[in-house]
Design a protein around this nucleic acid. Sequence first.
DNA 1: ATTCACACCTGGCTGC
DNA 2: TGCAGCCAGGTGTGAA
Length: 291
Amino acid sequence: MPELPEVEVVRRGLERWASGRTVAAAEVLHPRAVRRHTAGPADFAARLAGRRIGPARRRGKYLWLPFGEDGFSVLAHLGMSGQLLIQPPGTPDEKHLRIRIVFEDAEGGELRFVDQRTFGGLSLHPGEDDAEGLPDVIAHIAPDPLDPAFDEAAFHAALRRRRTTVKRALLDQSLISGVGNIYADEALWRSRLHYERPTATLTRKQTAELVSHVRDVMNAALAAGGTSFDSLYVNVNGESGYFERSLDAYGREDEPCRRCGTPMRRRAWMNRSSFYCPRCQRAPRPVPATR
DNA sequence: ATTCACACCTGGCTGC
DNA sequence: TGCAGCCAGGTGTGAA
């Protein structure tokens, strides 16, 4: 599933293969792929035509491409299965091709949004006067841990204030962005924290270690995902790529913990799975009843 | 205000 | 062999 490292690989691909080019025409093949564009598919296509694409930006799992002239951006989210591909001229349509963007320099290939499950999509938004140029619809998305703007003290304060558990907090994009189920489990394993640990009990040091592990695992994944990147592909197949072999927690039910050898466990949790080591990541003690 | 459950979607896999 | 049902899970929405 595309989480921050996968999305960043796509961003770099867009920067390399789409930025600076001018859109000739856009074609929406599935209306659901532009459902967040409230003015509809025809408006989406019409307003994209003739625009010159600026530098590719990212916050958390969102990507956007600004059009310098009039302050609009095309915002993208890959959802569960979305791909942004630059395909050479003549490439047959993918089964789940949803949006095609043709450039004036057609020989350089076209940009395609391909998405099996259609959880992802593209939309157009006015740019903000915000210095970051952040589209207003993602103003609620917190900086991600690789962003210099990420504020660890504010994150810790928010954790202490919240009445929630640590994995829920990691997946809450308004507290910290870019983390999904896979990297949440990896960071918790590295931090020896149980997913149901109440955030209000975390010490400053534990928060610092957790953030540090989130950064480390993302950087390691980014390094692995970046290797296959120097092709005409904007890349990314929605999988963790080479990094999948390096996972310590996610998907390792019944396999030995790489630290202590105890069989890893899987628990159904919030309509998904949590993988953890029952020895390294002890369940929190129940909070004693107060009277 | 905060927290939480749920809908959305389809291909691959499991089990009968 | 065929088919029903489950599973993957990020996000927006609306309810509690």
